[in-house]
């Protein structure tokens, strides 16, 4: 286990509309609870994304902010390689920025960083509400809970795998899938913030960046997970109705 982690929050001024700053807070909180010191670097519009941090986080943002973020990141030839080489979480607009391309509110396609083998389009209707998914090929991560608020879709191609299969909500808008896993990158449409509501996913990212971590349970967070899953997971509601 590393003694110290450097977490880079990429363009929080542009990609921070839906509380996704909480993902960085969850990572630092859970790392420090294990004795791992954290240094958080917030990358502003005029700053270069650091090349050698341990973990990179991108959040969600509005259309115009997303386009400015795309222009900014595409102007840096090495950003895609840096993010692809390190543990990275990308949420909502962050997911779209790492795809081959995405559409704005007028339907115009814009180039992404091409780090994920994913093409993002537009859903017919905005997806707003609670989401529950079952993670794919992540046995250490239980059901994921989050809140989605997006118009973007995501169609996965050859080398991209889904993060989860949708139990409740919309997700990527294709094949009942939600999010993306590819190489060191995990991407999702889930806010909540996703790492606050899903500590096992936070720990997965931390362990990839820092090595194996000792157990840590946060009762308050577990209670929050239970509350949200009780509300949003139809399987739980059925179980409650049937009395087991």
């Amino acid at each position: 286990m590393a003694d110290e982690l450097t977490i880079v929050h990429v363009l929080p001024d542009l990609l921070g509309t839906y509380g996704d700053r909480g993902n960085v807070l969850a990572l630092t909180h859970r790392a420090e609870a294990r004795g791992v010191a954290c240094r958080v670097v917030e990358v502003g519009l005029d700053e270069r994304v650091p090349r050698t941090a341990d973990l990179y986080v991108l959040g969600g943002g509005e259309d115009s902010a997303q386009l400015l973020a795309a222009r900014t990141l595409l102007a840096d030839d090495l950003v895609a390689a840096v993010l692809g080489a390190h543990t990275t979480l990308a949420v909502c607009a962050g997911l779209q920025l790492l795809a081959h391309g995405f559409e704005d509110s007028t339907g115009t396609r814009h180039q992404g960083l091409g780090l994920l083998d994913v093409e993002c389009g537009r859903l017919e209707e905005r997806a707003v509400g609670e989401v529950v998914t079952e993670p794919v090929d992540l046995p250490e991560v239980p059901s994921l809970t989050g809140y989605e608020n997006h118009r973007g879709s995501a169609r996965l191609h050859g080398s991209a795998r889904p993060l989860g299969r949708v139990v409740a909500g919309v997700g990527n808008g294709h094949d009942d899938l939600e999010g993306v896993q590819q190489g060191h990158v995990i991407a999702t449409y889930l806010h909540g913030p996703v790492l606050v509501r899903n500590p096992a996913l936070a720990d997965l990212l931390l362990s990839r960046a820092a090595g194996p971590l000792p157990e840590y349970e946060d009762p308050e967070v577990e209670e929050l997970r239970k509350e949200r899953l009780d509300v949003a997971d139809p399987r739980r509601r059925r179980r409650h109705l049937l009395g087991y």
């Binding site: 921070g16 839906y18 509380g19 996704d20 700053r21 909480g22 807070l25 707003v128 509400g129 609670e130 809140y147 608020n149 806010h191 909540g192 913030p193 606050v196």
Partner: peptide, 9 residues
């Protein structure tokens, strides 16, 4: 509003 994620802003 149904989404209290903004608490983290």
């Amino acid at each position: 509003g149904r989404d209290p994620s903004w608490l983290y802003d």
